[in-house]
Design a protein around this nucleic acid. Structure first.
Length: 110
DNA sequence: CGCGTGACAGACT
DNA sequence: GAGTCTGCCACGC
């Protein structure tokens, strides 16, 4: 029942701190939580985060701005729908003007 | 304790 | 420039 490991917890905090209409990348988050090398783990944590309404995992995309994890959402297009609903233009699973919507998360230190 | 894996990223061919 | 491969670390079995 919700182990809330420190690692996942950090990921949740950062993801949860993503402002409306903003997106970020796994690698950036990974660095923000102090595990730049564990960008993959971020996505792994997101897998659980996507199940948490408190964590807007749909605002997290890869470094290319592509909705790589939309496949993990309830609907194949749900993730894109959410992003578009926030004013983010998404085309072919890719966030348009990604850098414009890009949000730099605060560095969480242990 | 060891193996397999995963919503990435960077390096290499 | 685009496709392929390894590295990376944490979690599950």
């Amino acid at each position: 029942m919700a182990k809330n490991d420190n690692f996942f917890e950090k990921v949740y905090q950062v993801t949860r701190n993503i402002p409306y209409g903003k997106v970020t990348t796994y690698g950036t988050i990974a660095k923000a939580i102090g595990s730049a090398k564990s960008a993959r783990m971020v996505g792994y944590a997101m897998n659980n985060a996507a199940n948490l309404e408190d964590v807007p995992a749909h605002r997290v995309v890869n470094r290319n701005g592509i909705l790589t994890g939309k496949h993990h959402f309830s609907g194949t297009n749900l993730m894109q729908q959410l992003l578009e609903s926030e004013g983010i233009e998404v085309r072919n699973n890719t966030v348009q003007d990604f850098e414009k919507h890009f949000w730099k998360p605060p560095i969480l230190e242990d």
